[in-house]
Structure formats: structure tokens, C-alpha cells
Nucleic acid binder design. Structure first.
Lengths: 342, 342
DNA sequence: GTGAAAGCGCTAACAC
DNA sequence: GTGTTAGCGCTTTCAC
């Protein structure tokens, strides 16, 4: 790469001070029209491109959001990321992306400090919290960090945007009950994911409300994949042959259940009712099509960006005194064939 | 956010020069052991975090790769991104992510200049090239940009890493022919995607090699989604009722074909053979399971990072004289039930 | 081993 | 309207 032109060089070429060029570059009004035109011409000619890094050093704004995510191979996380990116772009922010692969092992504080060192204006944390160590690890260093917003588990100590997973699960189970299914099993995601825990809790709550006991043996854990869903279902049905419906924690695992059902000769929905979670685009194309819980994932990403930008723009001194924001979006039941009893 | 400690403040607290602190921070050997220990302690105590931006300004290295991608909602692109991120992290690079939504409309050069202004060390371009304007638009400004590598369409003028999509299509069609399917249709992706065009070309080449005419009426375009695949197939079968197999440009669209086949009462694989492309995790769980072309997508991402890092580390003066690199990875046929004729 | 001086590319604050 | 001065936080160079 050839050396790029600097502000100073443009200024010299134009015979003006760097300040004047700076004013042109930043579209300030107080420059004479012909000076501006002349400089603009030189900028083009020299291929001048402002050095964002130098600018950031002095303005203390990078217009960059740090995004920490995991599981981009799954529908949920990648859709949220798309939502984040779109809104960020619309608001003039770019993204620095960090992916973690083993959320359990992750060291919160070093990742956060890394991002802080990069001078991101704000942080979006989309990794499931493991246990309660968020409070323990993050709270004490919060004052050394830029504004941070978590995309899961609401917590009065932090700003959060999330989807009401528990409500989604309740919608799913209530629907199954309403359709007349009696024995409702549950296939959860990995227990380290907050989403998985919430969906399970919603399942339990809905059963309890209906006067049933949410026996933990009615629950089996998958790993978000179809293969995991199949495995979990086979395990479940072995212990509970009378099971006639399952609430599955995501659509991919539900597909695994379809396969197991076929292999066992169980008809969906007559002998086995299934409700998934996500409403990913293929769910409508399962055979039979999958009843599921639709999540506003892109909106979640967009809301998260809007909230963090609000926090960023709030005057620094108010920053810590301010109450953390908390947004909870509602999911929605999508009725299809996998729970339709004629 | 509270004001963070600077190098200078640490130096003052320690009663040494900034230089000495800098040496400690950068793990230089030439510092007395007790000086180092003392400073290290203060760094911890003050919560000092080096400002990467200031460092980059002077070292001219950001250890950041700019990634321009699109279609993260699809399996291919998001898997490539995961591969990119893993390898980048392993090599000590972080990512600045730019997503474009309408690759057709995208203005190459402004995006590239934007990234260059952010001082990324290298650029990974994972957006499909529209027509031939890559050559026209990018070539003339190449000398003003950091090293750039394209994740598609090989071109002697640029460094590229890609998967041999054409070969994949040939594998698919040859397999169908070998299984005895006579009338082989094709469902392509959007024509603006290089991958789609290549797969179509491979289909045509394989048919031609077998003495058949690749009639363009045997081709229908989808949009990578199951819904699009269904639509494209219905269109196809209406014009060619004798069609008994299709090569579908990705697995999601293949799922749409399954649905159409069921609605038309066509049995897979006896009356309709189907080969997909991607081998995304759910393909093995389709009913019947889907024969498809597996792409080494994560590896593609990893290779791309390795190549761009090589370019970055190559001495600047050799940079432009050097021949562009080109890596082409091979896909693989995965045999399953959707093409099995007993 | 350690420090002083210079400056990366840019903008803020003020003077004229 | 435009220029001057100062300095963001750090590393480089070279002196001691």
C-alpha cells in the first residue's frame, strides 16, 4: 500500500493551514466557498482519506460498538446480529465483533477490558450469562467501562434488552394443553444458556398452573441441533412412552424430533404434538409445518443498538447515577399443523 | 464512565518516565525486575488499560481486519464468518464488520475507503461481485488500500479464496445421471450471486458432457429460501411435467422442493431425485434425508484469514509487485436418501 | 536500565 | 474566514 495523503499534505498543497482543510473535511460552514472548492478538489486528487484513528484519539469517540456474541451458527444469534448491524449502520456506528466459543469458560473481564482498550463507544453483550457471575465480575469494573447492555437475563443492576422467553414457553404449553394434549414433555437447550433455562421455567410454570406436576424426568436437554433434538426425544420417550406432545426449545431440535417420530412410527400431530421456538424460516416447510413461538430477533438487535446509543449520548456525569434501562420484547405463538388435532 | 488511567498517570504514580511504563506494558526485557513489579502493581491498582487507538496511530497497525459480508441470515455466509472470526482471533486480529443488504446497489469504493480510513490492516470481501465491476472499480484504487482478499470469483488481478462451486455442481449432476435420472432440472440462487452462477454453469457443463442440452427452461431461480425453492420448483414442473430430478442451489430451497413434491404427490426419491448444496446441519434430518454437496465453509474463512495475514505481513515494497494469491477449495458429494433408487 | 524529546494525524480553543 | 498553539496517549529514537 502506497503512503496515503495526510491532512497536512493537503494543507500544504492548497497553501492553507491544516485547520482550514479540517473544516472542509468536517463540513463546517465557516469556510469561504472558493477555498472549500479548491481544497475539495485537492482532496480528490490526492486521494485523501481522513484517519479515523487520529480523529478518535482526540474526539474520544470511535463510533464503534463492541459486540460480543456466540453461536453465530444458530438462527437466533445470527439474526440478532443482523438486526444489530442494520440499526448500527443506520445510526452511524460500526461494529467490532468478538465471538466466544465456550461461553462457560469465558473470562468476562478480560474481554470487556479488551473492548474498552479499543475505545469502543459502547458494548453489546450477547453471550449467555453463566450462573450469577455477571453481577460478581462485571459490577465492580463497570465504572472503568463504556456503557454496556446485555442481550439477555434482566437484572436490576444492568441495562438489558431481551425477549420474554418464559412467556413464549407459557404460550406454547398453554396451547398444547388447550389442544387436549395431556402428557407434555420438554426438550431444552444447553443449560448454560439463559434462554434455555427460561423456556424450561415457562414450561414448568404453565404445567403447574394447569395443575400438573412438571416432573424433571419429563425434561431432556439437547444442544440446539437437530441431532441433539432427536437424541433428547428418544431418551424422553423411552422413559415416558405415554408422552403425546413436546415443547422443544428451538426449531432445529424440533426437526430432530420429527425424524425420531417417523422412525418410531408416531404420527404428527395426532400421536405427537410439537411446538418449537424461533419460527425460523424453514419451520413453515417442515412436514407437517411446525407450530412455534416467533421471536422478534431483528427487532431485539435494533432495540439494543438504540438503547446503547442512548446511554452513550447521555452526559457522562449522569451516566452512573442513571437507572439501567430494561426492555423486554414479547414473542408470539404461530399456529401450524404440528399441533392441529382434528 | 469514569476517566481511565493513562500511561502518564501510571508513570507519575510510580515516579518513573512514561517510557519505562511503556516497556513494562509491552513486555520488553530491559527493565529492572523490581521496577517492573512495582509498575505492574500500580497498573492493576489504577486499572490501567492501554489505549489501542493511540498505539495504532504510531505503529500503523490496528490488528483489525475489515470484513464486508452479506446474507448473514443464510447458512453459508454466517458459517464463513464464524471461520473467519476463529482464525482471526487465533492470529491476534479482531474484526470490523460491515454488512451490506443490497449487494447490487453497493458502492464498492466508498465502502473500501471507509475501511481504509479506519486503518484496518486488511480487508476480506465476502460480497458477491456484481457483473465485472470489481475489476473496473477496485483495480484503480488498489494502491490506496490495505491488502484485500475476495471470497469468491477467482480473478488473476486479485487475491481470492473460494470454493469450487462449479465442481460441486458437476458432482451433483453426475451423481443424478449415474443414478439413472434422465430429466434434470435446476433451481438456482439469485443471479447476482457468483455462487449461484457457478453452480448453474456446472449443471450445464455436466449435462452437456453427458450429451444433453442444458435447456434454460429447465432452470428456475429461487432466493435461497425454502419459500423461493418451492415457488421455483412449481414453476419448473409446470413447464416440464416429465422432470424427475432437480439440482437445487442450496439446502433451504431444497426443503421448499420437498414441500412442493408432497403437495404434488411425488415421491422422493423414486419419482423425484433431489440434490442440494451446502450440507447444512439439518439436511441429514430432512425426510427423506438430503443428498447434497458439502462445502468446507469454516475452512474457507480460516484460509482467507491466513492468506490476508500473509499479505499484511509481506514487506510493503513487495506488496504490489507480488502476484495475487488464489485458493480454491473442493466441495464433496454427501450421499443420502433423496437420490437413492432401489 | 532509564529518561528526554519528538511526533503519529488530527481537532479544540482561541486569536486575529 | 483563517491561522496558531496545544495536545489526545502512546511509541520511537537516541542520549545518558
Amino acid at each position: 500500500m502506497v503512503k496515503k495523503a495526510t491532512l497536512k499534505e493537503v494543507a500544504q498543497a492548497a497553501g492553507v493551514s491544516t485547520q482550514t482543510v479540517s473544516r472542509v473535511v468536517n463540513q463546517r460552514p465557516d469556510v469561504a466557498e472558493d477555498t472549500r472548492a479548491h481544497i475539495q478538489e485537492l482532496i480528490l486528487k490526492l486521494g485523501y482519506q481522513p484517519n479515523t484513528i487520529a480523529r478518535s484519539l482526540i474526539t474520544r469517540r470511535t463510533h464503534t460498538l463492541g459486540v460480543v456474541a456466540t453461536g453465530l451458527e444458530y438462527y437466533g444469534p445470527s439474526t440478532i446480529l443482523v438486526g444489530i448491524q442494520q440499526e448500527a449502520e443506520a445510526l452511524g456506528f460500526s461494529l467490532t465483533l468478538l465471538l466466544t466459543h465456550e461461553p462457560e469458560k469465558e473470562d468476562f473481564s478480560s474481554t470487556l477490558f479488551d473492548l474498552a482498550g479499543r475505545q469502543v463507544d459502547g458494548i453489546l453483550w450477547a453471550v449467555p450469562p453463566v450462573g450469577q457471575n455477571r453481577t460478581k465480575t462485571v459490577a465492580p469494573i463497570l465504572h472503568q467501562l463504556p456503557p454496556i447492555l446485555f442481550l439477555n437475563q434482566p437484572d436490576p443492576a444492568f441495562s438489558v434488552a431481551a425477549i420474554d422467553n418464559r412467556l413464549g414457553a407459557v404460550l406454547a404449553v398453554d396451547h398444547l394443553l388447550h389442544q387436549g394434549y395431556q402428557h407434555i414433555g420438554m426438550i431444552t437447550g444447553p443449560e448454560t444458556w439463559w434462554e434455555a433455562a427460561e423456556r424450561r421455567a415457562g414450561w414448568a410454570a404453565a404445567l403447574t398452573a394447569a395443575g400438573q406436576h412438571p416432573d424433571s424426568r419429563l425434561v431432556s436437554a439437547g444442544d440446539w441441533t437437530a441431532a441433539g433434538g432427536e437424541r433428547a426425544f428418544l431418551e424422553l420417550i423411552q422413559h415416558f412412552p405415554e408422552l403425546n406432545s413436546v415443547f422443544v426449545s428451538n426449531d432445529q431440535m424440533a426437526l430432530g424430533v420429527y425424524k425420531a417420530a417417523r422412525d418410531l412410527g408416531k404420527n404428527i400431530p395426532d400421536q405427537l404434538g410439537i411446538v418449537g421456538f424461533d419460527d425460523y424460516p424453514e419451520a413453515a416447510f417442515f412436514l407437517p409445518s411446525l407450530t412455534t413461538i416467533r421471536q422478534p430477533l431483528r427487532e431485539l438487535g435494533a432495540v439494543a443498538v438504540r438503547e446503547i446509543v442512548k446511554l452513550i449520548q447521555c452526559p457522562k456525569d449522569l451516566h452512573l447515577n442513571q437507572l439501567p434501562t430494561s426492555v423486554l420484547l414479547k414473542p408470539q405463538l404461530i399456529l401450524r399443523e404440528s399441533t392441529r388435532i382434528k
